[in-house]
Amino acid sequence: MAGTLVVCEHLAGKFSDITFEMLDLANSLGTGEINALTFGSMAENAGELGIANKVISASCSNDFNPETYSAATVAAIESTSPDLILIASTSMGYDLANPVAASLDLPLVAYCTGIQNNGEDFVCTSSLYGGKMNVSSKVSGPVVAMVLSGTHDADSGRREGAPSMSEIAAPATDGKIRFKRLIEPEPGDVDITQSEILIAVGRGIGSKDDIEVAEELAELLNADIACSRPLVDAGWMEKSRQVGKSGFKVKPKLYITLGISGAPEHIEGMKDSATIIAINSDENAPIFDVAHYGVVEDLFEVCEELIEELE
C-alpha cells in the first residue's frame, strides 16, 4: 500500500473541519503513510496536521483557484503515488476532485460517508439520492474519494505533531480562471448561529405563505426561523436563514424541522444541535436518522394542534 494523500481544504486562513475529518478517516484505514497537501502559506499551520507523516506544501496563492489547485494536486499525486486520494465533497472539492480524476484518468467516488480498506481494494460508501440510499462501490486504488462533511470525527483528526515538510511548485496553468475576491455574507436581521431555538422549514411547507404557521409556532416557543436551501432558491427566505452546506452551521439547544427530508447537505449544518425534533409526513425521510424525536404526520396538522395545545 502506497499510502493516502489528504488534500487539505482551508478557508480564510484556517483549515476547514473537513480537513481533520479526512485525516481521521485516513488514520483509521491503515493504508500506510499519510501525506497531507496544503496550499499557499497554510503549511505554517502544519503542526495541526499531526496525523500526517509528511506535509507537502504547494507554493501558490492562499486563494482557491480550480486550475492551480488541481495542477498542484496532480503534481503531488505524481510525486507520492498514493493509493487513496481524499478530497472534500465541498464547493472547492467539486472543482478539484473532478479535474484531478479526469486528468489522471483515475476512478472517482463522490459523496463518501465511509471507506473500507480491504487490502486489495477499497469499498467506498456514498450517500446518494438525497441521503435516501447508501451505495457501495468497489474500486482498486489509486482512487479519488470525495468525503462528505460531518461523516468523520474532526476532533480526533486534529492532532498536534511535527510532520516532515516538503514543497512542490504548483505547475503553470493557462490562467483561464482568475480569482477576484472573497465576499463575506451579508448579515441578516437574525444571526441563526446564535439562536437557542430554531424552527427550520423545508420544501414540505409547500408555499411562501404557509411559512406563517412556522412563524406562529416560533413566536410561542421564542424561536427563530431557519430553512433549508430550496426555500432560499425559491426566494421565500433570506440566505442568512439557511442551514447546511452552503449556509450556516448551527448548534442550538433545540432544532425543530418542518417538512425537511434531511438531504446530506442540510444535515451537515444541524446535526450537532442538542435536541432535534423532526416533523415530516414521509416516515422514510433521512431526517429521522439524525433526529432525537420524530413525528410522522402532516406538518400543518401538527403545527396547528401544537399551537392550540401550547396556547
Partner: peptide, 30 residues
C-alpha cells in the same frame, strides 16, 4: 467509471429518533 457498484441499501429509517404519535406528548417534551 473504474469502480463497480457492489451494493444499494436504505439507511435504517428512523433508527435514531424516538417516534411521537400524539400532540400532548410533543407538548410535554417541549
Amino acid at each position: 467509471s473504474g469502480s463497480t457498484v457492489s451494493g444499494f441499501s436504505q439507511p435504517e429509517g428512523g433508527s435514531g429518533a424516538k417516534m411521537i404519535s400524539d400532540i400532548e406528548e410533543l407538548a410535554e417534551l417541549l
